[in-house]
Amino acid sequence: MTIAVRAESITKTFNGTQKALDQVNLSVNHGEVLVVMGPSGSGKSTLIRTFNGLEAIDAGQLEIVGIPLDTDQDERQIRRIRRRVGMVFQQFNLFPHLSILDNITLAPIRVKKVSKANAEQRAHGLLAQMGIADQAMKYPAELSGGQQQRVAIARALAMDPELMLFDEPTSALDPERVKEVLDAMRRLAADGMTMIVVTHELGFAREVADRVLFMDAGRVVELTDSTTFFTQAKEERSRRFLNQMAH
């Protein structure tokens, strides 16, 4: 099995003092689903944002899909990684001035040099897979939050990524819209996609994750298979968090 993410004592400091990441070690295999949990400000978002170069690390070593990502970032190197790593944001971040179809085909056509016809065919396929086949000609503002997030997932998938990063993908959604997005992610996981998901959805984590990474104050508190995490977490901090989430 090949390794999708290898992080060795990576550290990230904001404003010179506040440690967002403190000596984080992590290795994620291809085909694995890792859920990252922890209280807000624990560094979970920062962690996955370093994996596609949206945040630079200050120290340590990072290798994403076999490409090293050094502390002094080379733009071209980062773009090589980004072409192969998809990212889904909490706020969807669809391009509001482009149609759903253009949102999805922009990068395949301009970055991967896929022909327009092929890119559009693929986009229609992905939209169907996401259960929103009839929305292609609309604009993002005309869609519900859940639909927008599924377009965002389709947009990332259109680049045929080896690794998908999800940064709290359901946190900005109405409760009744959460399920449709999680279902799409479940299907993706079932198809064997390598996924790293920052989320507070305990049900999703319990059901879909192979392993759970629990963070607090920029440090890894616990990294274990999800069954163990939810039934017999070793650390007191993890148990306290799970307890609070259950209430």
Binding site: E75, R83, R155, M159
Partner: peptide, 10 residues
């Protein structure tokens, strides 16, 4: 961040 994440250059 969205366009950068798609590998689109500046």
């Amino acid at each position: 961040e969205a366009f950068r994440s798609l590998g689109i250059n500046e």
